[in-house]
């Protein structure tokens, strides 16, 4: 299938899901669905670097929080534009504020992508594990920065007041529905990007890095440049997933935004689904994401996190290629009896 056809299909599928959700008319469905969609974006983004290149990123929460706090800062500037935007430059920028959510998503993606690029430049020239450890430490440091940054609320957190609904032509669209639609579109974009990479020169370059970086380097693959591209794309998508979050939740504080659940979920979902294709993170995110939404309501949120950790360990030990790998093996076994 052509990439543009696939993208159209994804958008059409998204529209279908949205129409179905609207038809069911349950606000809870939108609330829960938003989280699942957010994890589809995060898992797909993680997989671009982790699954395709073989470089582990433990800093999903950090990239997610970069998006979230970019939104918080820009929202605050927009809400008090008279105070923060003075001088000639400020007057030029003033008509742009307050920014709409799609604009915030794009800006957050840019910020997170640039930070990912910088991080990668410092650590990707060394062995892969240093990058992994650096991303782990980066989450702690960014959290420290945010705690000490009074402008976005410091450790007390910040409230974001959103409108009740969006005035649309013909009918009123609730704000949660609006955010759900944005996240749906973002998931479609992330999956299209992942599939496009998979079938392109870039994707084959990534695969050579994953399989044998030394040999790839010797064969003339520009490994550092490819790794930096992967880190920037992956970081940007994670930042984009974080951008609408303050509007969704209404109140953000560092401990929650930097929570370990983002890091563990975005690793567990591709690992459980299968890391070599775009469908793996999608399957993993839908399965684990819905399971957690159900378990949070029926059991408790701590138990479902424990479940994710146990599933991650069990899958990497027993089924290293995830559900996609199991399906593949099963098909092979059937073909050759």
């Amino acid at each position: 299938m052509r990439p543009w056809k696939f993208s159209l299909l994804m958008v059409a599928a998204g529209a279908g899901v949205f129409a179905l959700a609207l038809a069911i008319r349950s606000d809870y469905l939108f609330f829960a669905g938003y989280v699942v969609l957010q994890f589809i974006v995060l898992a797909t983004a993680w997989n671009i670097l982790g699954g395709y290149c073989g470089y582990v990123n433990f800093g999903t929460a950090a990239f997610f929080a970069i998006g979230t706090y970019t939104t918080v800062a820009l929202h605050k500037i927009g809400a008090n534009s008279g105070r923060y935007l003075s001088g000639t430059l400020g007057e030029l920028l003033q008509p742009l504020f307050p920014l709409s959510v799609p604009a915030l998503v794009i800006l957050s993606g840019a910020v997170a992508g640039v930070i990912g690029l910088g991080m990668g430049y410092l650590t990707l020239r060394l062995r892969g594990v240093f990058f992994a450890i650096a991303t782990l430490a980066m989450a702690v440091v960014l959290q420290t920065l945010v705690i000490n940054w009074e402008f976005v609320g410091g450790s007390r957190g910040a409230y974001i007041i959103r409108e009740e609904s969006l005035p649309m032509v013909g009918f009123k669209l609730g704000y949660v529905q609006y955010l759900f639609a944005i996240m749906l579109l973002l998931a479609a974009v992330a999956l299209s990007v992942a599939r496009l990479i998979e079938r392109s020169r870039l994707g084959y370059g990534f695969a050579t890095i994953r399989d044998d970086e030394m040999a790839a380097e010797a064969a003339g693959v520009p490994t550092l440049r490819l790794k930096l591209i992967a880190t920037a794309i992956s970081g940007a998508l994670m930042g984009m997933a974080g951008a609408p979050y303050p509007y969704y939740i209404g109140y953000v504080e560092p401990a929650g935004t930097f929570g370990l659940q983002y890091a563990v979920n975005s690793i567990a979902m591709p690992m459980i689904g299968g890391t070599t294709s775009w469908a793996g993170p999608l399957i993993g995110a839908i399965l684990l994401g819905s399971m957690q939404q159900i378990a949070t309501v029926t059991i408790s949120s701590a138990v479902n996190l424990l479940l994710v950790g146990v599933l991650l360990v069990v899958f990497v030990v027993i089924a290293p290629n995830g559900i996609m790998g199991l399906i593949f093996d099963w098909q092979h076994a059937r073909r050759k009896p």
Partner: peptide
Amino acid sequence: AAFERRGQEALRGLAFFFGLLFITEVGLIL
């Protein structure tokens, strides 16, 4: 048995230890 012998310590071995870290933390919280 699961990673080193199969040569998969880079990606899955890291995820394995990360999972262990997570399990001890959440287990102690519970």
